[in-house]
């Protein structure tokens, strides 16, 4: 049986080194590029006709646009409009990474902690900068609950601070863990089916169910990643 974590192995395609750092073009990089190309193609070609009554592809592109736009409007407010391109790109990048990974023999770059953390830390730092830029040191006020006795600050503030700092980690680990676990389960089950031969019919049905579930998780995690970004943005912009 194939090792279920074999699918996460990174293979260099074009070895590359810049300033002594290994930045080889790998299978992971390849699928990032594929995602960029597909997402761009999908979002530009589908609306090429600029049809007033949209076709199937255009409807999907419009649906995604409005989905993210509504998410920002509901969670961030009107001031969140200028972050729309970033949030939308983030959503597309994660979504395409998750969905591409559902195709057999592909590489799921969102199942790599380096990638998810790389995205999460950018969001975290960006949001923190926005918060301080808008509110100055007043932003620190967030870490102390309103109305709590001042003496409790010495314990509450560090806890809230750690809670705040753990956000990029939990964001990154969540996406990584969901994608990794899902793919391992699929791989293990597929291995079982191959081993069982004819008797593998029953697990095959189950595998179909799990695959559907994994598609749901792929969509859900892209949504979670995006909506958390929106919530963080809301905090940084509005601050109660």
């Amino acid at each position: 049986m194939a090792n279920p974590v074999e699918q996460f192995k990174i293979e260099p395609i074009v070895p590359l080194e810049i300033g002594g750092v290994n930045v080889s073009f790998t299978n992971s990089s390849l699928f990032m590029v594929v995602a960029v190309v597909l997402a761009t193609a999908f979002l530009t070609l589908s609306v090429k006709g600029r049809a007033l009554v949209p076709g199937r592809w255009q409807s999907m592109a419009e649906l995604m646009y409005e989905f993210v736009a509504n998410m920002i409007r509901d969670n961030v407010g009107t001031e969140g409009r200028k972050y729309f391109p970033f949030v939308f790109t983030l959503f597309m990048f994660v979504l395409f990474g998750n969905l591409l990974g559902m195709i057999p023999y592909t590489f799921t770059y969102t199942s790599h902690i380096a990638v998810t953390f790389g995205l999460a830390i950018v969001i975290f730092i960006g949001v923190t900068i926005i918060g301080f830029a808008r509110h100055g040191t007043h932003y620190l006020r967030m870490f102390f609950p309103h109305g709590a006795p001042l003496a409790t600050a010495i314990i509450l503030v560090p806890i809230e601070l750690i809670s705040y700092c753990s956000r990029p980690f939990s964001l990154a680990i969540r996406l990584f863990a969901n994608m990794t676990v899902g793919h391992i389960i699929l791989k293990v089950m597929a291995g079982f089916i191959i081993m069982l031969g004819i008797a593998g019919i029953a697990p095959m049905v189950f595998l179909g169910g799990v695959t559907v579930l994994e598609f749901g998780i792929a969509l859900l995690q892209a949504y979670v990643f995006t909506i958390l970004t929106c919530i963080y943005l809301h905090d940084a912009i509005h601050m109660h």
Partner: peptide, 17 residues
């Protein structure tokens, strides 16, 4: 989902602390 979430929060908080 919730199981992963709880585990992740546990790890993240302790790790950051």
């Amino acid at each position: 989902g919730m199981g992963i979430r709880v585990g992740v929060e546990l790890i993240a908080g302790i790790a950051v602390g």
